[in-house]
Design a protein around this nucleic acid. Structure first.
Length: 923
RNA sequence: GCUCGAAUGGUGGAAUGGUAGACACGAGGGACUUAAAAUCCCUUGGCCAUAGCGGCUGUGCGGGUUCGAGUCCCGCUUCGAGCACCA
């Protein structure tokens, strides 16, 4: 029997599928393990070799855990809503569902060919009404909840209403967009619409007038994580700021918990750090600056309370509502002109243009500590959306304030001893305070850190401010003006939004004639006929964003066909949360924040029993493309090989990597590739055409896309799996390069040759020797350790060493080979399954038990120890493994070469680390 | 600017503070072949020596801790990632 991957892999894949070998059910008393991959968006291009990298890593872990006796949940599904299918629909009129289903079918067949052990019975699609029913359901729960800051969790809005009825806002602890104050009488006097608007200030899912990232080309708003440097991540179109009435999720209320709970997670430092940056906690103080000659009070936020004595002016964001309230008649025209000029600029232009600009309002604020009047300015360097949209400016110790003060010639008062502020500000939070003394507060001589604390305490006592923590994290904008997304379970009655009753879920996406906005500028759902409730009330026209469906999908896998609940209590309590989550870093500030938020919300409601969704996270690296080039001699159809190209004037041309093998061009394939090249001539080196190469993004235009199907066809799925893991650490990005794949392919053949020579089965039942046992137990130990740390590349090296050693030993013994096959099964499941049966086993290899290694076999009879003199001259000595340190020492000093080296010197110190090394210091 | 991470042969990459370069690719040499493919064996960080033994040097740069540093500490350089008028 020759090794034939096509036959073996097709046969076992079919067997696994027909017998549902990987179907998983709750087994009470059996320990569970949940391994999840980030589900893919099924794009039209199909999978390339980069996609399965993470899936292979997680599949190895899954199979390993099964062999260790765990009940492993390992599902797969599709993040099926998304812009590409909709854009395609706009161009072709093809319903996005049709495209999406076709793409899913392709993905499924590609995934199956790689031999993953998914429980396909649990497959989900976010665009399936049975699935998005629960996305809509969760939204309704968010609408009906507010965040109670005292309880530190979401609570029913009904409770809040009850409180308003009795006490108004007195004594509430609700996280709101703004701080509102009203009495019970005020509340009762409100009409329906006013009450609805008021509650929007507190609901976790709320309609709000917010500045949104509006992308005209995409015709939709985008969340902050979908925008980078002023352009959309998808498509790279300009994004502008626009005030719109949109559905939002109050993610900001959970900022503190999202930040604190990061501590508990077994995630990489870099991704935790990214989330910390994104959440952006800053601890500081909010302080009141009264406006001179009025009863208006400006609230500002600062992290440098210690610098109040150095405040020489105040600055408001152009959008601040205070601007209009305090501007003096003489300055009104100038201020209006300035604000108009700002509005004409996009966010991007404002960011790029770092020129200092601003205008004086004519008003003065009173410094609460010094009692002095200080001018209030307006400038776009202050952001409306952060803190209170107003700042106290301390030019001596803040570079932005410094630039502003210099530009408008405002005073600069240094507050830290020895700080030279003649050229630039001194921003560091260190040094001793000066110039900071009033009648009842003296900071002079204090360290900055102490001065901050002292000032905070002082302002709280005096009632002129309070300690406050601010977060950079904003609420998530949840409306999209698109077709291909979940409809909101919302209808409007007299302009007031209401949730549909649960009995009407799922609210299914309607048919439309076109996938474009309506003539009146409404979203595509505005085209749907009878898009009303049965009572005739209009339904919401926006749809939900991409992250809606992906925020709780890991819960649905636990109980995917349940039509009574998102997940049953039984399933949730058994599977709990994801033990291992594998996916890319690109979701750090999107999906991985939203999912954590969504899960915490459901946790507050008591729907789920774990506060965090993903215990351990592994970020697989990106697979980059490795492009190949041919070199055409200018104005000819002659191509010159890489090593000779410097002798000619050449143009490099991308060549399809699929007609290049190990950088050697298949010249016949090249001639057939494009008509232009049919009569191409070649200047070869050593009879070969060598191509140049470069690492670039894997994309169609670079002609460097490698389809896993081609690799599977040529080398087999097992080789693909082993090779992708062998390429390097899972977490590292690396270019796809098939140059080493033959090594892995050879390994499988060598493994096969341990079982067969031609058609003869070599397997015997002889007792293994000590050397053979040592070889296999070395492997078991290494692989067991490596899998736990995802060091799959070194595991595969260990397999190669093991097979080479067994080949040398001519070992064909069942006991040894059996362990080898089981340990290999997670990595190369098809060939392992085949050989497992060759060894005479009836059941599948996943029913086997992971072999335990036996330290006794690994013990050496003797150790080679390095004897080092002064850490330099080194000799090796052989000592019995169990020899005591003093004897080792004696032996080391007695060594022939050592004796020569020590001659005439004195031994000062001898260090023996058992099993490792002997160090001898001489002098 | 702030934060985090990385740097080891021709290449991908190994090394709980203990003989740096496992394993693989590539390259060179050899065996078997009419020949090629496949397979097998040897060499392969650099420099020197070579009949043979061997010697020196070496993990981005400069210091330090240690008997001993790729690994730990301090200071740089370069590259990558995240955040960024966030007060």
């Amino acid at each position: 029997m020759e090794y034939n991957h096509r036959d073996i892999e097709a046969r076992w894949q079919q067997y696994w599928k027909e017998n549902k070998v990987y179907k998983t059910d709750i087994v009470e008393g059996k320990p569970k393990f949940y391994v999840l991959d980030m589900f893919p968006y099924p794009s039209g291009a199909g999978l390339h070799v980069g996609h399965p990298l993470g899936y292979i890593a997680s599949d190895i872990f899954t199979r390993y855990k099964r062999l260790q006796g765990f009940n492993v949940l390992h599902p797969m599904g599709y993040d099926a809503y998304g812009l590409p299918a909709e854009q395609y629909a706009i161009q072709t009129g093809q319903h996005p569902e049709v495209t999406t289903n076709a793409n899913i079918a392709r993905y499924r067949s590609q995934l199956e060919k790689i031999g993953f052990s998914f429980d396909w019975d649990r497959e989900i699609r976010t665009c399936d009404p049975e699935y998005y029913k629960w996305t809509q359901w969760a939204f309704i729960q968010m609408f009906n909840s507010y965040y109670d800051t005292k309880a530190g969790k979401a609570m029913p809005v009904a409770d809040l209403v009850a409180h308003f009825e009795k006490h108004g806002t007195e004594g509430i602890n609700a996280w709101g967009s703004k701080e509102l104050h009203f009495t019970a009488a005020d509340w009762r006097a409100m009409d329906e619409k006013q009450k609805s608007d008021t509650l929007m200030n507190y609901r976790i899912a709320y309609l709000g007038n917010t500045m949104v990232n509006w992308c005209p080309q995409l015709g939709t708003v985008l969340a902050n994580d979908e925008v980078s440097e002023g352009v959309s991540i998808r498509g790279g179109f300009p994004v502008e700021q626009k005030l719109m009435y949109q559905w939002c999720l109050r993610v900001s209320a959970y900022a503190g918990r999202l930040l604190d709970d990061l501590e508990k997670l077994d995630w990489s430092d870099s991704i935790k750090e990214t989330q910390r940056n994104w959440i952006g906690r800053s601890e500081g103080a909010e302080m009141k600056f009264p406006i001179a000659g009025s009863d208006i009070v400006l609230d500002i936020f600062t992290t440098r309370a210690d610098t109040v004595f150095g405040v020489t002016f105040m600055v408001l964001a152009p959008e601040s509502k205070y601007v209009d309230m305090i501007v003096t008649p003489e300055q009104r025209q100038a201020v209006d002109d300035y604000i108009t000029s700002i509005k004409h600029k996009t966010e991007r232009e404002r960011m790029i243009d770092k020129k200092v600009s601003g205008v004086f309002t004519g008003a003065y604020a009173v410094n609460p500590l010094t009692g002095k009047n200080i001018p209030v300015w307006v400038s776009d360097y202050v952001l409306a959306g952060y803190g209170t949209g107003a700042i106290m400016a301390v030019p001596a110790h803040d570079s932005r304030d410094y630039a502003f003060a210099r530009h408008f010639d405002l005073p600069i008062i240094p507050l830290i001893e020895g700080a030279d502020v003649s050229e630039e500000s001194f921003d560091a939070k260190e040094g001793k305070m000066i110039n900071s003394c009033s009648a009842d507060l003296d900071l002079n001589g204090m360290e900055v850190k102490d001065a901050i604390a002292a000032t905070k305490k002082y302002i709280e006592q005096k009632g002129i401010g309070k300690v406050k923590t601010n977060y950079r994290l904003r609420d998530a904008i949840f409306s999209r003006q698109r077709y291909w997304g979940e409809p909101f379970p919302v209808y409007y009655k007299d302009g007031i939004p209401h949730m549909l009753p649960e009995s009407m879920l799922p609210l299914q996406l309607p048919e439309v004639d076109k996938y474009l906005p309506t003539e009146t500028g409404e979203p595509p759902l505005g085209r749907a006929k009878n898009w009303n409730t049965p009572d005739g009330y209009p339904l919401e026209l926006n749809t939900m964003p991409g992250f809606a469906g992906s925020s709780a999908y890991y819960l649905r896998y636990m109980d995917p066909r349940n039509d009574k609940a998102l997940v049953s209590r039984e399933a949730d309590e058994y599977w709990r949360n994801v033990d291992l989550y594998v996916g890319g870093t690109e979701h750090a500030t999107g999906h991985l924040i939203y999912s954590r938020f969504w899960n915490k919300f459901l946790y507050d409601l008591g729907v789920v029993c774990e506060p965090e969704p993903f215990k351990k996270l592994i970020n697989q690296g990106m697979i980059q493309g490795r492009s190949n080039f041919v070199y055409r001699i200018k104005d000819t159809n002659t191509f010159v090989s890489l090593g000779l190209k410097d002798n000619y004037e050449v143009t490099p041309i991308h060549v399809d990597v699929n007609i290049v093998n190990n950088d050697i061009l298949d010249v016949d394939a090249f001639r057939n590739w494009r008509p232009d090249y049919a009569d191409a001539e070649f200047i070869l080196e050593d009879g070969k055409y060598v191509c140049g190469w470069a690492v670039e993004k894997m994309s169609k235009s670079m002609l460097n896309v490698v389809n896993p199907d081609d690799i599977v066809e040529r080398y087999g799925a097992d080789t693909l799996r082993l090779y992708e893991m062998f390429l390097g650490p899972v977490e590292q990005s690396k270019p796809w390069d098939t140059n080493g794949i033959d090594g892995v392919s050879r390994f499988i053949k060598k493994l096969w040759n341990l079982f067969y020579k031609g058609d003869t089965l070599l397997v015997t039942d002889d007792e293994p020797t000590r050397d053979e046992l040592k070889t296999i137990h070395k492997l078991i130990k290494k692989v067991t350790g490596d899998i736990e740390t995802f060091s799959y590349n070194t595991s595969i090296s260990a397999f190669m060493v093991c097979v080479n050693e067994l080949t040398q030993l001519k070992c064909h013994k069942r006991a040894i080979l059996s362990d080898l096959v089981v340990v290999l099964a997670p990595f190369a499941p098809h060939v392992a399954e085949e050989l497992w049966h060759v060894l005479g086993n009836e059941s599948t290899v996943c029913d086997a038990k992971w072999p335990a290694f036996n330290e006794d076999y690994l013990k050496e009879d003797s150790l080679t120890m390095a004897v080092s003199f002064n850490g330099r001259a080194r000799f090796n000595i052989q000592v019995p493994a169990d020899m005591a340190a003093p004897d080792v020492e004696a032996m080391a000093l007695g060594h022939e070469n050592a004796a020569k080296w020590i001659e005439g010197k004195t031994v000062r110190k001898v260090i023996v680390v058992p099993g490792k090394i002997v160090n001898i210091v001489v002098g």
